[in-house]
Nucleic acid binder design. Structure first.
Lengths: 350, 350
DNA sequence: ATTAGCACTCGGGGAGCAAGAGTGCTAACA
DNA sequence: TGTTAGCACTCTTGCTCCCCGAGTGCTAAT
C-alpha cells in the first residue's frame, strides 16, 4: 500500500464527506496538496477499488468510499483537530456543572450532540451498579397509603406509593423499617435479586402478612434503579439526510431499545460502528460514533452520535471524546485524572 | 344545500379517506347507496366546489375535500359507530385500572392511541391544580445531604436532593419540618407562589440561615408539580404519511411544546382542528382530534391524535372519546357519572 | 330535473436524444 | 519503471415529445 494511495483515499473521503457526490480523479488532482495528474490518480483509484476501499456507483461515475475505506480512514488516516478552548467552554456550558444531576448531565450531552452535529444522539444513563442502598423509608401518607423512598449512595432517589389492606401501627411500621434497613442497608444495587425479595416477603409475612406489598414495592423500585435507560435524541435528523433509507430509519426509531445490548458490548475508548456490520443496528448507510463514560473508574454508561456514514468524523469524534471525559470527570466528583475545565491540551500528536 | 349534495360530499370524503386518491364522479356513482348517474354527480360536485367544500388538484382529476368540506363532514354528516365491547375491553386493558398511577394512565392512553390509529398522539398530564399539599418530609441521607419529599392529596410524589452548608441537629430539623407543615399543609398547589416562598425563606433564615436551600428546594418541587407536561408519542408515524410535508413535521416534533398553549384553550368535548386554521400547530395537511379529560369534575388535561387531514375520523373519534371518559372516570375514583367498565351503551342515535 | 354523449384538458409514463462527467486503455515521455 | 496526455467508451441526467387514460364541462335528448 503506497503512501500516495493512502493520501488519495483520505482525499476521496474528505471530498465525499464535504460534497456528498461521488468524487472523480479530476477533482482530486485539483486539490492543493496533491501534485500528480488525474491519470495517475485514476490508476491509484482503480487499485484502491481492487483492494475494496472504494467503489463506483456505476461505470463513469466518481468513486465513493466503501465502509472498509471509512474504517481505514478513521483508524489510520484521519487526524481530528483538538477542540479550541471556546468550543470546550461551549460544551461545558451546555453540559452543566458538578451540581447538575447525573440524569440531566447525560440528557444535556445528548442535546448538545444533536445540536452541534445535526445528527441523532444516543445516551444511556449511569447505572448505579456498584452503589449501595443507603436508606429506605416508609412514610404513611393517608388511609392505608404509604410512600416508599429508596436512596442509594450515589444519590439516586426513587419513590413509589403503595396501598396496603390495613393501616400499620407505629410499632409495626418501626419493625418493618428496621427489618428492611438491616437487610438492605449497604447492599449493592447489583446484588439485589428477585430471590432476595422473595425471602424477605416470606420473613415479613410471618410477622404480618399485609406487609408484603411494601416489600414488593421496594423490589420494584430497585428494578427501576438497575434499569438502564436509553434516550435517542434528534432521531428526526436522520430523516432529513437522504443517504439513509427512510423506512429503515423509522423502524430504527421505533425499536431504539435494541441498541442497548449493542452499547453494552462496546469496549472503552471511542468506537465507530457501521450499520452494515451489525444486525441490531441495521440502518444501511449509517454509522455510529460511541464512547463509554466512567464513574469513579468504572464504566457507567455510553453516549454517541448516529448519522449517515458520510459524517464529518473529524468534527464529531472530538466532541464525543470531550463530552465523555467531562461527564466522567463530573460524575466522579473530580477524581478522574482528566483536566477539570476548558484548558485541556492533551492534543494528540499531529 | 340539497340533501343529495350532502350525501355526495360524505361519499367523497369517505372514498378519499379510504383510497387517498382524488375521487371522480364515476367512482361515486358506483357506490351502493347512490342511485344517480355520474353526470348528475358531476353537476353536484361542481356546485360543491363552488361552495368551497371540494377542490380539484387540477382539471381532469377527481375531487378532494377542502378543510371546510371536512369540517362539515365531521360536524354534520359523519356518524361514528360506537365501540364494540371487545374494543372497549381492549382499551381498558391498555389503559390500566384504578391502581395505575395517573402519570402512567395518560402515557398508556398515548401509547394506545398511537398503536390503534397509527398516528401520533399527544397527552398532557393531569395538573393537580386543586389538590393540596398533604405532606412534606425532610430526610437526612448523608453528610449535609437531605432529601425533600413532597406529597399532594391527589397522590403526586416529588423528591429532590438538597445539599446544605451545615448539618442540622435533630431539633433544627424538627423545627423546620413543623414550620413547613404548618405553613404548607392543606395549601392548594395553585396557591403556591414565589412570594410565599420568599416570605418563608425570610422567616426561616431568621432562625437559621442555612435552612433556606431547603425552602428553595421545596419551591422548586412545587413548580415541578404545577408544570403541565406534554408528551408526543409516535411522532415518527407522521413522517411515513406522505400527505404531510416532512420538513414541517420535523419542525413540529422539535417544537412540540408550542402545542400546550393551544391544548389549554380548547373547550370541553371532542374537537377537531386543522393545521391550516392554526398558527401554532402549523403542519399543512394535518388535523388534530383532541378532548379534555376531567378529574372530579374539573378539566385536568388533554389527550388527542394528530394525523393527516385524511384520517379515519369515524374510527378515531370514538377511541379518543372513550379514553377521555375512562380516564376521567379512573382519575375521579369512580365518581364521574360514566359507566365504569366496558359495557357502555350510550350510543349516539344513529 | 336527469341523463347520455362528446369534445376537451391535463398529468403520468415511456421513448428517444444530447450533453456531460468520468473512466480505462494505450502510447509517449522522463 | 513510473507518470502523463489523449482518446474512445460508458453511463447517468435532464430534456423534449408524445401518447394514453381519467375525468371534466357542456349540450342535447329524455
Amino acid at each position: 500500500m503506497d503512501d500516495r494511495k493512502l493520501k488519495i483515499l483520505a482525499a476521496v473521503v474528505d471530498e465525499y464527506v464535504r460534497t456528498g457526490e461521488p468524487v472523480g480523479s479530476k477533482a482530486i488532482s485539483q486539490l492543493e496538496h496533491i501534485n500528480v495528474s488525474a491519470a495517475t490518480i485514476r490508476n491509484d483509484m482503480a487499485a484502491l477499488e481492487q483492494l475494496g476501499y472504494l467503489e463506483q456507483p456505476h461505470t463513469s461515475a466518481g468513486r465513493v468510499p466503501t465502509f472498509q475505506g471509512y474504517r481505514l480512514y478513521i483508524d489510520e488516516l484521519m487526524t481530528p483537530p483538538s477542540l479550541t478552548d471556546e468550543e470546550k467552554e461551549r460544551l461545558d456550558d451546555m453540559l452543566g456543572d458538578s451540581d447538575t444531576p447525573e440524569e440531566l448531565l447525560v440528557q444535556n450531552a445528548a442535546a448538545a450532540l444533536t445540536e452541534l452535529t445535526q445528527c441523532a444522539a444516543v445516551v444511556t444513563n449511569a447505572v448505579p451498579r456498584f452503589s449501595v442502598i443507603s436508606k429506605v423509608e416508609v412514610i404513611p401518607t393517608g388511609k392505608r397509603l404509604y410512600v416508599i423512598l429508596l436512596i442509594t449512595s450515589s444519590g439516586s432517589i426513587k419513590n413509589k406509593a403503595c396501598r396496603l389492606e390495613f393501616d400499620l401501627s407505629h410499632e409495626q411500621l418501626e419493625f418493618f423499617t428496621r427489618y428492611i434497613e438491616e437487610n438492605l442497608n449497604g447492599v449493592s444495587v447489583d446484588e439485589l435479586s428477585e430471590e432476595m425479595f422473595d425471602k424477605m416477603v416470606a420473613a415479613v409475612s410471618a410477622y404480618m402478612v399485609s406487609l408484603s406489598p411494601l416489600v414488593k414495592g421496594i423490589c420494584e423500585l430497585s428494578e427501576d434503579l438497575r434499569q438502564q435507560e436509553l434516550t435517542l435524541s434528534g432521531g428526526e435528523k436522520l430523516l432529513s439526510c437522504d443517504d439513509l433509507d427512510k423506512m429503515e430509519v423509522v423502524r430504527f426509531i421505533e425499536h431504539k431499545d435494541d441498541l442497548s445490548s449493542m452499547l453494552e458490548e462496546t469496549f472503552s475508548g471511542i468506537q465507530v460502528k457501521f450499520g452494515q456490520e451489525s444486525g441490531t443496528f441495521a440502518i444501511g448507510n449509517s454509522s455510529m460514533i460511541v464512547s463509554k463514560y466512567r464513574k469513579s473508574g468504572r464504566e457507567a454508561g455510553s453516549l454517541g452520535v448516529i448519522g449517515p456514514m458520510r459524517v464529518d468524523y473529524k468534527k464529531i469524534i472530538p466532541y464525543v471524546d470531550y463530552l465523555t471525559q467531562r461527564i466522567s470527570y463530573l460524575m466522579s466528583g473530580g477524581e478522574e485524572n482528566i483536566p477539570p475545565a476548558a484548558d485541556t491540551d492533551s492534543a494528540p500528536p499531529d
